[in-house]
Simulated assay, not measured.
Amino acid sequence: MAQQSQESVVSVLVTDTTGVSFAEIRAGELHRLHAVPGEMRKAVGTTRRAVRHRRGLTLLSRVPERKVPVLNGPGDASAALPAPELPRQRNEVTVSGVTAGGTVLAFGDWNTDRLSPDLYALPWGADAWQHIEVPEDFALAHLAGSDGDIAHVVGGVGRAPAVLLADRRPALFAVDTARGTVTELPLPVAGPARRRWDRWRLSGIDPAVGKFEDAAYHDDVLVASASYGEYFEYEVLHAVDRARGTWSTVQLRNGECARAQYVDARRTAYTVTSFGNLWISQAGGPWQRTPLRKRLAEVTGVSTRGFAAGPAAFVDGRLLIDADGAVVACEPDGTRPRVLHWYDEDTDILAFVEPPAGTVGAA
């Protein structure tokens, strides 16, 4: 097995018998620094993330008896406090993401006349949420990137109240948090192109319909995932270059899903999956799968059969991944994997502290 690397510090959220902690991996050792309030247990349908931005640290952590699962504080999580409540919400709030400036986008209660629920923005340091009106045929989903007051959010467009994915098409939106507006950004009119072999795997899956889900957006290049199937058991990866007009897709295996997505300064899109696979697309071109899964198995000593990857993130120009008891770092293209830390069975890696979606470079 690989030797533990003496690299720069990696910040993580971990849970064990003592609760949830903000921790750092240094010189192969895990150092728990601060307890994190709130409920961070993994469960179906939940997202647990820690985003370090220019203003501090935002944690997605459910606080008992509060409907907004957001904590804000300094970069070391030493004094994280719950975000203000949204007005008049019956149900728990869903967080779309956090911009580079620390603004949180969140969804409140659903309106039966619209595809999207109510959209709210909370700038860093604000004591109240701003309501943003969303056109009735827009279905916003997840934050993909940001530029100043503009937040880029993916989702779909359809006829309200469209329920079937076939009644929607994938879309990219610009949310102007200063003006309180939402507009659709044009995507290539030719639509998505798939490899010939992919067309015959499940002819019922049409990537031209549905909606984008988790995504990253930078320099006119978008990488996103979308779910299909009766039980949403199949995911398709999208790589879109708005400047070149190219749009490529690839279908993952049954039950495989995207763990982390990234666009680098060379306009290359990356997606690492729950099966430990790494897919790469250059400027919206055809997807290529790297041998990351095999490399992870080699450095951890685990068989590739049944191998499953935990949380992953692209941070400070490298890919971090929880690989069956080991925290592994490698280059964004999956090369040079090295084990940073082995953790025991009583510890669970909940999330890596990551930069905001669409961010290139250091967190």
Rank of each mutant, 00 (worst) to 15 (best):
S61F: 00
S61P: 00
R62H: 12
V63T: 15
V63H: 02
V63G: 05
V63S: 04
P64S: 14
P64I: 07
P64R: 11
R66D: 11
R66I: 06
K67F: 13
V68D: 02
P69W: 04
V70L: 00
V70R: 02
L71F: 02
L71C: 08
L71T: 06
N72I: 10
N72Y: 02
P74F: 05
P74G: 11
D76Y: 09
D76F: 04
D76G: 03
D76T: 05
A77H: 04
S78A: 15
A79S: 14
L81N: 11
L81W: 08
A83F: 03
P84M: 02
P84S: 10
P84N: 09
E85W: 07
E85K: 01
E85I: 03
L86Q: 07
P87E: 06
P87G: 07
P87A: 10
R88G: 03
R88Q: 09
R88L: 07
Q89C: 09
Q89T: 14
Q89V: 15
Q89I: 14
N91W: 10
N91P: 00
E92C: 05
V93H: 03
T94E: 13
V95M: 04
V95W: 01
V95L: 06
S96N: 09
V98Y: 01
V98G: 00
V98F: 01
T99D: 02
A100G: 15
A100V: 04
G101V: 00
G101A: 14
G102H: 11
T103G: 02
T103E: 13
V104A: 04
V104M: 05
L105R: 04
A106H: 04
F107V: 00
D109A: 07
D109S: 06
D109F: 11
N111I: 08
N111M: 04
N111G: 10
D113Y: 08
L115G: 05
S116W: 01
S116G: 09
S116D: 03
D118C: 02
D118V: 06
D118H: 11
D118S: 15
L119I: 01
L119F: 02
Y120C: 10
A121Y: 11
A121P: 09
A121N: 12
L122Y: 12
L122G: 09
P123C: 14
P123Y: 09
P123L: 10
W124E: 14
W124Q: 09
W124T: 08
G125E: 12
Q130W: 03
Q130L: 13
Q130A: 12
H131T: 13
H131E: 13
I132H: 11
I132N: 05
V134I: 13
P135Y: 12
P135N: 13
E136G: 01
D137V: 02
F138G: 03
F138N: 01
F138C: 05
A139L: 15
A139D: 12
A139R: 13
L140C: 07
L140T: 12
L140S: 12
L140I: 14
A141P: 00
H142I: 00
L143P: 00
L143N: 02
A144R: 03
A144T: 07
S146F: 08
S146V: 10
